[in-house]
């Protein structure tokens, strides 16, 4: 396997604020790699460092074999970068934006015609060709951004939160495009705050407060959660939370709106009965085992990290 991106001890500070601390990551050719974390975790900073539009405070990044500070311009030939904010010109039409991107990367002649055709087909933007980009819907804008980032057939695609602010249907649609690219063997690094999207990556790095909490396939990450998840809905969740907090069997309690997710060492009926007993006096609406999702895994890892800091 060929290594496309290699980050070693990468850190970035902004004044007194440390945005990223000591990141080590290796991304192989053909991966659909997810950088997952909440707002302010450092996702955009990490992608900017990889895109060589920002220099690290410490550590090194090699992208397609080029060092990101000294050989920044070579890096840019091999990447397609889509910033989180819409980076295209709202007053230019879809076609003009794509043409501009093609000219910037020196894509011309028959090659240009062929690629534009494929990208239009791929993104379904053909019928909006002469519409100013500023008038597109959120999902369409992201697709246009993707198309512009791909015009030069980059070896690596860097997409910063491509589905933030996009409706659910368009989000699914966009991820179908990404899966298609994955199938074609294009290396893609995508950042997202959504855990359900993380499930669709072949490998995921969990970013929290500028540190990588875990980096593995979704399956392996979920396995890191020791035990099972049990969903609990009661008439008084706050009291239930208090009653269960110091339970030996319970590893973690996570609140999701009206429901509590209990991360337990086991979910046998016997254990569930023990919980019922403990919640004596509270009406239990629902108590049943559930599959572990990325969400639980992430929250578990975050809670664990914070406990470590406290300890």
């Amino acid at each position: 396997m060929e290594t496309m991106i290699e980050l070693q001890g990468l850190s970035r500070r902004f004044g007194t604020v440390t945005a990223l601390t000591d990141i080590d990551l290796t991304i192989q050719k053909g991966e659909l790699f997810g950088i997952v974390g909440p707002d302010g975790a450092g996702k955009s900073t990490l992608l900017r460092l990889i895109a060589a539009v920002l220099d690290p405070s410490a550590g090194t990044a090699h992208i397609h074999g080029f060092e990101s500070v000294r050989e920044a311009e070579q890096v840019k030939h091999h990447i397609g970068y889509m910033p989180q904010r819409f980076g295209l010109y709202p007053d230019l039409t879809v076609a003009e934006n794509l043409d501009f991107a093609a000219q910037l990367f020196g894509v011309k002649g028959a090659q240009r015609t062929e690629r534009l055709h494929r990208l239009y087909e791929f993104t379904n933007l053909e019928r909006f060709k002469s519409r100013p980009a500023g008038l597109l819907s959120g999902g369409m804008k992201k697709k246009l951004g993707l198309a512009c980032a791909m015009i030069h057939h980059p070896a690596i695609l860097l997409l910063d939160e491509p589905t933030t602010g996009v409706d659910p249907v368009a989000r699914r649609n966009f991820w179908d495009l990404l899966s298609g690219l994955h199938a074609e063997g294009i290396t893609t690094v995508v950042s997202t705050p959504y855990m359900d999207e993380a499930e669709r990556c072949n490998r995921v790095a969990f970013l929290f407060k500028g540190r990588v909490l875990a980096c593995d396939t979704p399956e392996h990450i979920k396995e890191k959660v020791p035990g099972k998840v049990v969903v609990l809905e009661t008439s008084d969740n706050r009291r239930a939370h208090q009653l269960l907090e110091d339970g030996i069997l319970i590893l973690d309690i996570q609140t999701y709106g009206e429901q509590l997710n209990l991360v337990m060492q086991s979910d046998t009926p016997h254990v569930l009965d023990a919980i019922r007993q403990r919640l004596d006096g509270i009406t239990i609406h629902r108590l049943e085992p559930a599959p572990i999702r990325m969400e639980e895994a992430f929250i578990y890892l975050v809670n664990q990290a914070e406990r470590e800091v406290l300890a």
């Binding site: 970068y81 904010r85 819409f86 980076g87 010109y89 991107a101």
Partner: peptide
């Protein structure tokens, strides 16, 4: 407008 960031990532 953020378009400069996009330009910066091109060669």
């Amino acid at each position: 407008n953020g378009t400069l960031e996009q330009l910066m990532a091109t060669p």
